[in-house]
């Protein structure tokens, strides 16, 4: 008879494996809380990729040139792919994609609050690529070393694809910034609106982030919210200068002693409002997603019916 282990001793062994940087693989034993935390995090990440297609998708038909349209299409298609990689990673933990997408549609699982802001002008497409994808890359690069193997591998693949997302946004804004006065203003306005929400993407400050300690111990999270945010600010300030655009923060400045840029306080009240469902586009995002799901149902059903008939034909033959 194989030896039986108590959950306690298994949990100890699990933590030891994590401490020695061993990745967790789907069939390994893991604490239930690790599993449920991982499912929730990967699902929210997947939902963010899928919902994230909407703000930019909004501009595909109105892109100002064929070149820009092709780029934007490719980018939005990548985001769909990212969502699918991530749902597949979540499924290795014993849930089905459909359960997760149902939870999203029912409003019982969240996605990144950034996608509840509207894309008012063409410059927003640039600001999203530069700032939102820039912040996402900062976050995702850290996650390539997360402890759950399938999630980490999805991150590696995603990061490889992301770099063009940020660059196309930067290039788009650079063109506008150096364009006519109206174009420059449009670029500046977009940056003004996206800067603070982009900083919020890293989540609440470490001091108010109750799950951080456990996630760090399990190496689900490798870098804290505040550290990631600082990384992003330090990287972005010189880029803004190169663009000839201002970041809307009067307190932004190099701190010689810290060796980092200081920045002003973030409006966490706004963050809570948007996360709580009261952002400018929350309702729209979910209803568009729900409509896409309902309108695509007949395609999925037809494909299944076709497959059923093929099976029948094969067994008859």
């Amino acid at each position: 008879m194989p030896p039986t282990y108590s959950d306690e001793s298994r949990e100890l062994a699990f933590q030891e494996a994590i401490d020695s940087d061993r990745t967790v693989e789907p069939r390994d034993w893991m604490p239930e809380r690790y599993r449920s935390t991982m499912i929730r995090q990967i699902a929210q990440h997947a939902h963010s990729e899928i919902i994230g297609m909407q703000p930019e998708g909004n501009w595909i038909t109105r892109a100002p040139s064929l070149r820009r349209k092709a780029i934007l299409l490719a980018k939005v298609q990548d985001e769909a792919g990212h969502g699918l990689y991530l749902y597949a990673a979540a499924e290795t933990l014993g849930v089905e994609r459909r359960e997760l997408t149902d939870l999203l549609l029912a409003g019982r699982q969240k996605y990144s609050s950034i996608f509840n802001y509207p894309t008012l002008t063409w410059a927003d497409v640039g600001a999203i690529g530069w700032l939102v994808d820039g912040a996402a890359i900062t976050n995702q690069l850290a996650l390539t070393k997360t402890s759950y193997g399938p999630y980490a591998r999805a991150m590696v693949r995603i990061c490889r694809e992301e770099s063009f997302h940020q660059r196309q946004g930067f290039e788009l804004l650079a063109e506008l910034s150096r364009g006519t006065e109206a174009q420059h203003e449009m670029a500046q306005d977009a940056v003004n609106r996206w800067w603070w929400p982009a900083l919020m993407m890293f989540g609440p400050p470490d001091a108010e982030s109750p799950n951080t300690a456990q996630s760090m111990a399990w190496k689900i999270k490798r870098v804290s919210n505040d550290d990631l945010r600082q990384r992003f600010v330090d990287m972005t300030v010189p880029q803004a200068r190169a663009l000839g655009l201002d970041l809307p923060d009067p307190e932004l400045g190099w701190n010689e002693t810290r060796g980092h840029y200081d920045f002003g306080p973030i409006d966490w009240e706004e963050f809570r409002e948007v996360v709580g469902g009261h952002g400018p586009c929350n309702l729209q995002r979910i209803s568009v997603r729900r409509a896409a799901d309902e309108e695509g149902a007949w395609v999925r059903e037809a494909a299944r019916a076709w497959e059923g008939r093929q099976q029948g034909r094969m067994s008859a033959a």
Binding site: R98, D102, R300
Partner: peptide, 10 residues
């Protein structure tokens, strides 16, 4: 949410 089962996994 018209179907209970998703397409199979490959």
């Amino acid at each position: 949410m018209s179907e209970s089962d998703d397409w199979p996994l490959w």
